[in-house]
Write a protein that binds this DNA or RNA. Structure first.
Lengths: 123, 123
DNA sequence: TTGATGTTATAATTGTTCTATAACACAAGA
DNA sequence: TCTTGTGTTATAGAACAATTATAACATCAA
């Protein structure tokens, strides 16, 4: 477990922690089912308060990415096979936002998709 | 000019104002080059402080969507023909975030693009 | 029983958001 | 030129969120 806090302003520490864990999970540095450090241990590691880490874990739990149990610790949940309808709605919203942002900057939906096909899929 | 503030918590009022203006510009309710209400007038309209509206306008100015001039007012900038490299980088980042979010919820990049093609483009 | 876990509660500190008020500099029109 | 309407800057305070600090509690495993 290795998390570097950027220390930049404007981004809450608990979001940064949660974001880093999600990134590591995405790129494979963390595995599904793996056990995370306890809130106290990670807090000590990051030189941060216990509740800040807990806040981050709660965020992840709300997204179904993590399960917390008293006395047993916190571990990464198994990856869902399919997104729920709620999640799909959220993703669609997220996409529309991106589409709007791109349009206002001079790039319509067609061009945006082209742009993503060219540079987006890191394959 | 017609802006409805949701009043929901967690979202700063100035972001909501800026977001609404961007949405109206996206859907054509506002036109490029059009003059916006002065900070004082819009503040009165929304029953909000002058500085809150100014904060929203500043946000839009930073994104190149609006120009503010002392004594002359604030108007919507012309739509850029092409996004700048900085904007393209920002959009790509935004996409990668969406891609990651989708993956963690059980939808890989391929499936996400398929999903967007089906439901995304409101055509 | 012991030790580690997450949970809950209370409080203090700091930064952000929003309001309030006032004055200033610039531009347009009478 | 004078007046009015712009955005700009400054200061102050209230309300809220984020972070820290303690402390105690409930649960689980060894």
């Amino acid at each position: 477990m290795f998390i570097a806090l950027s220390g930049r302003e404007g981004v809450p520490v608990y979001e940064e922690i949660a974001g880093e864990i999600k990134r590591q999970l995405f790129v494979g540095e963390l595995q599904y089912g793996e056990e995370l450090p306890s809130v106290r241990v990670l807090a000590e590691l990051l030189q941060v308060n216990m509740h800040t880490v807990r806040h981050a874990y709660l965020l992840l739990e709300q997204q179904g990415l993590v399960t917390m149990r008293v006395g047993r610790g916190t571990r990464i949940a198994p990856r869902p096979a399919k997104p729920t309808p709620e999640v799909k709605a959220r993703l669609l919203n997220y996409w529309r936002q991106l589409e709007q942002e791109a349009f206002l900057q001079g790039m319509d939906a067609e061009q945006l998709l082209q742009f993503i096909r060219e540079e987006g899929c890191h394959a």
